[in-house]
């Protein structure tokens, strides 16, 4: 394989948040990222930087990442103040260096929210999302005994809307980008998916109350309808799901 040619390469200055552990103090540390091919993904650029750090005997930058195809939701960081970087509808692993220019300074920070504690460097603990799902983000059906898949017809339009909501990858960009560190897009997407599908109806009330209650308990902020979550969501999930959650929640609270 040929190395990428000279004119396709750029040099960058990175300022990366370094923090040893949750209780330690952190700070921005500068690194040089040189000879970065524009075809690289952002994470591949960090791989190159980390290889250099390891060779110099220092501790490499920690960052969650796994599938590197934008679906697992592991990766994520604030890049120049934008969740998953400046491109719309993109996770960090799918952000390519062709969107940067030679000489750019790139500030990289972890997601910030009271509910997301920093584990190390850019790695944060997003188990608060799991807790919200555990509170009711499922349909209570045991294995076995399900009726035929076609027993309940689901209009195509409904299935498509449910799928729009179900695309959430749980990366946390919504809460990270929200001026109030609110998790309402995440929670609203799950509540919406099941509120739309007939299978979710029997538990709809309980689900809305329990999931919103857990979301509040985890310490996320309140939605003020700023739409930053929608703008940064790598899957483009609409805030209409928040409206639907509000409706479900109010229905459950008042009409019970």
């Amino acid at each position: 394989m040929k190395q990428a040619s000279g004119e396709k390469c750029i040099n960058l200055k990175l300022k990366v948040w370094r923090q040893k552990a949750e209780e330690s103090n952190g700070r921005l540390e500068s690194f040089k990222a040189e000879n970065i091919s524009k075809d690289m993904s952002f994470l591949e650029m960090l791989d190159v930087v980390n290889e250099e750090i390891i060779l110099s005997g220092k501790d490499p930058i920690a960052l969650d990442h796994d599938c590197r195809e934008g679906i697992c939701g592991s990766c994520g960081a604030m890049v120049n103040g934008r969740a998953h970087g400046p491109e719309k509808g993109t996770t960090l692993c799918q952000l390519h260096m062709r969107h940067f220019s030679n000489g750019d300074t790139v500030v990289i920070e972890p997601w910030r929210s009271r509910a997301f504690k920093v584990v190390k460097d850019l790695v944060v603990d997003r188990s608060a999302f799991d807790k919200i799902i555990q509170a009711g983000g499922y349909i209570s059906v045991n294995t076995g005994g399900a009726p035929d898949g076609n027993a309940i017809p689901v209009p195509q339009e409904v299935a498509e809307k449910a799928m729009d909501a179900a695309e959430c990858i749980g990366c946390g960009a919504c809460a990270a980008a929200c001026p109030n560190a609110s998790a309402m897009l995440f929670t609203g997407a799950k509540i919406s998916q099941f509120a739309l599908l007939p299978q979710g109806h029997p538990e709809a009330k309980k689900r809305a109350l329990a999931m919103v209650g857990e979301m509040d308990k985890q310490g996320f902020g309140n939605c003020t309808n700023e739409k930053e979550c929608e703008a940064e969501c790598p899957k483009g999930i609409s805030i209409i799901n928040i409206a639907r959650m509000n409706r479900e929640f109010l229905k459950s609270s008042i009409l019970s």
Partner: peptide, 19 residues
């Protein structure tokens, strides 16, 4: 509450076009 929900602020933060 919203202020408290993010105890450590970002060093650099830009709007994404929703606000």
């Amino acid at each position: 509450q919203n202020f408290r929900a993010r105890p450590v602020r970002y060093k650099k933060k830009r709007n994404a076009g929703g606000r």
